[in-house]
């Protein structure tokens, strides 16, 4: 035990000290930015909003209706969907041990959208709250099926990045074709709803939608954060995790279900919005490191902030018309994805 290391082998390159306090600080900063962005974004838009509209009594005031019934629900929905997409991206990247996993790229969001399309045509829209939940349940089931298919494929193929992305490509193509086929079967009203889901939009947000989305998303997020340490250990490999007393299959099952729940509830209210789940965890890892106990809540906060900003851009750039928010996130995310592919190229 008294052998000493060769002095020539002393460290030369990157050293890094990360303190838990740094993560706390980044998370606190993100929270403050999110609140400020929510306030700011409320004033920006096609119709002007005055300070006095913010008073609680102004709720019934027709002049304040834009703020309380159109803009605020939309901002809150953007934040919630962004949080869901960011956190589910982080969870899936941990699950697949792969920084390129994303609910959109792997076809899980499209699978959820396909299930929504089927339920839109099969279930009458007059079911109210039950209808909202039925859309969420459909989106969840579609997302879950795709997630399981991709996961089983990844396990069989040994988890290679290229194989995973190609499988996602195939699922995306399949779901796209199925949605395309459904458009031929749908009437005018259904066609409008279908194109809304495939393009991705936060317009027409309702407080009830937000409540339904939150009732699924918040518990799922909390449960995900509880297995943060196990997700860290899983990065060593299935076998090593098992030797450390973790049941990798159970952890993977739980994470797949929770991630699909979150993606499903996001797709149910906003359609398919790409790249948030890819971009956000990656940026955060550079700031606070890859530990999931910080990464999961941090990705929720940064995702909320990013989608809020993207949506504000989407509705102001060409005001009074608006762009689909998915266009903005793809404009940001796709070049970044290319950059990641190039920088990770050697490992593919």
């Amino acid at each position: 035990m008294h052998y000493t290391a060769n002095p020539k082998m002393m460290p030369s390159a990157i050293t890094e000290t990360r303190h838990p306090n740094a993560a706390y600080r980044v998370l606190g900063l993100l929270m403050a930015c999110l609140l400020a962005a929510l306030m700011l974004a409320a004033f920006v838009g096609a119709a002007s909003v005055e300070w006095q509209h913010w008073q609680w009594r102004a709720w019934q005031n027709p002049e304040a209706a834009i703020l309380w019934h159109i803009r605020l629900p939309r901002l809150c929905l953007a934040a919630i969907v962004g949080a869901g997409l960011g956190a589910s991206g982080a969870a899936m990247q941990g699950l697949f041990r792969n920084p390129l996993a994303d609910p959109g790229l792997l076809g899980i969001a499209n699978g959820a959208a396909l299930a929504v399309a089927i339920s839109l045509i099969a279930i009458p829209s007059s079911w109210g709250l039950l209808g909202l939940y039925s859309i969420s349940i459909a989106a969840f089931s579609g997302g879950l099926i795709c997630c399981i298919v991709i996961f089983l494929f990844a396990r069989r193929s040994g988890g290679g990045v290229a194989a995973l992305l190609l499988a996602g490509l195939a699922i995306n193509a399949l779901c796209g074709a199925a949605i395309g086929f459904l458009t031929y079967l749908s009437d005018d009203q259904q066609l409008r709803s279908l194109s809304f889901w495939t393009m991705g939009s936060l317009g027409g947000a309702l407080w009830t939608q937000i409540a339904v989305c939150c009732s699924v998303l918040i518990p799922a997020l909390l449960l995900l954060t509880r297995s943060a340490r196990q997700l860290d250990v899983l990065q060593l490999g299935d076998r090593s995790a098992e030797y450390l007393g973790i049941d990798p299959r159970q952890l993977q099952r739980r994470t797949v279900i929770l991630a699909a729940l979150i993606v499903g509830s996001c797709v149910a209210v906003s359609g398919v919005i790409g790249f948030v789940g890819l971009l956000v965890p990656h940026l955060l890892r550079m700031l606070i490191g890859p530990q999931h106990r910080w990464l999961l809540p941090g990705s929720a906060l940064l995702g909320a902030l990013l989608l809020l900003a993207a949506d504000t851009l989407a509705r102001t750039v060409v005001a009074p018309a608006e762009l689909p928010v998915g266009v903005i996130t793809s404009l940001l995310g796709a070049p970044y994805f290319l950059y990641l592919l190039i920088s990770q190229g050697r490992r593919l």
Binding site: P99, Q235, L236, D238, R239, E242, G245, I246, D247, R285
Partner: peptide, 22 residues
Amino acid sequence: AASLARRRAVLTQEQSLLFPFT
């Protein structure tokens, strides 16, 4: 699995870390 983990440790040949852990 937990009680075994307290009594034995295993070094495998797995190399799957892709994230920037310290």
